[in-house]
Design a protein around this nucleic acid. Sequence first.
DNA 1: GCTGAAACGGAACGCTGCTCCATTTAGTAT
DNA 2: ATACTAAATGGAGCAGCGTTCCGTTTCAGC
Lengths: 198, 198
Amino acid sequence: MTAGGPAGEVPSRSKRADAQRNREAVLTAAAAVFVTAGVDAPIRRIAAEAGVGMATIYRHFPTRADLVTAVYQHQIEACAEAGPHLLADADSPLDALHQWIDLFVDFLVTKHGLADALQSDSDRFTALHAYFLDRLLPVCAHLLDAAVEAGDITPGTQPYELMRGIGNLCIGRDNDPRYDPRRLVALLLQGLRRSSTA
Amino acid sequence: MTAGGPAGEVPSRSKRADAQRNREAVLTAAAAVFVTAGVDAPIRRIAAEAGVGMATIYRHFPTRADLVTAVYQHQIEACAEAGPHLLADADSPLDALHQWIDLFVDFLVTKHGLADALQSDSDRFTALHAYFLDRLLPVCAHLLDAAVEAGDITPGTQPYELMRGIGNLCIGRDNDPRYDPRRLVALLLQGLRRSSTA
DNA sequence: GCTGAAACGGAACGCTGCTCCATTTAGTAT
DNA sequence: ATACTAAATGGAGCAGCGTTCCGTTTCAGC
């Protein structure tokens, strides 16, 4: 019951001050290194950048997925929270879905290697995959349902499948002028539209 | 001058017999290992399976892409050759495109990690990427052009982008019942259709 | 200050890709 | 049949990476 003491309301407190500081240093360093070397950057590199030992990183973030998740948590949250907002403001549910997916795609393509990691068949990133799903799948499902209900798109598409499809389309070398994920995502969404012949 | 001897007409000859044998052994072993461990399987493993040293593999196949290419060459060729054949037999160019893409997708999804390798941003597989493009891009372009000319789909889609998109959709853990690349590829093709409102 | 425990750092281990070179072996000329 | 040469071989060796382990340092409460 722990009457008056810290009961763990704020999860990031109740640790030693230096541990807190190091945690922040690691997050900052990781964010910087991820930009240039991708989310697969060597732990040693991040540790050096942060001025800590490797064990410190492993202690704070047991798996790489935990580190990546922590680095991008705010942006993932922002994307999740944008969903209902867009639905309220857009001209149609389909518009809202489009705009939300644009946000999602922008997020993925600007994070070097993130889309790759999300779909990696390695077990290293399962937790990251799970976090994305927990946070964004309901949002996507809601938008999808709204668009179906409005009669804009055909029913039957599973949100999970759609999100993975979009994520997959974002995989690949950056800055290839011949390949723009956005165009293919647009094509995919076009395929979702309710055809007039149906 | 080497009057009567082999002059090198057949490129895979003109090597010592043991080298030929080892080359075949490596290909067989690699094919077997790829099935269970994916195209990223350690060279040591393939060497052990083939009963040769690692250097032998590197000598015959300088890069991993060369090895993977050699292992799947016949299937890639078959896929390439099927294109014109399908176009001649199918009811419509769009049908032919569909069937050909089905072939392509089947090929990718049954080769563990191949789709991942094709889009990997690592330089290890650039040659593989190039080979796929050299061989299959013209076929895809031809089918696409025919479908556009028949008025079945809207013009403007680049064959390269389409192929990469399809390849990307095939990436991921095998046997996930919630994600079937075929459904998304179908959706993508649906998006290519000429809409009656255009 | 003193002390116990939390936190730390980097050496160490295992696995992998790739290279280098002493040794073996196939093919040929005698 | 034998000897010779160049092709071919194999595995030790090096470097980079993820992950763990443990002796040492540092914080925080008394």
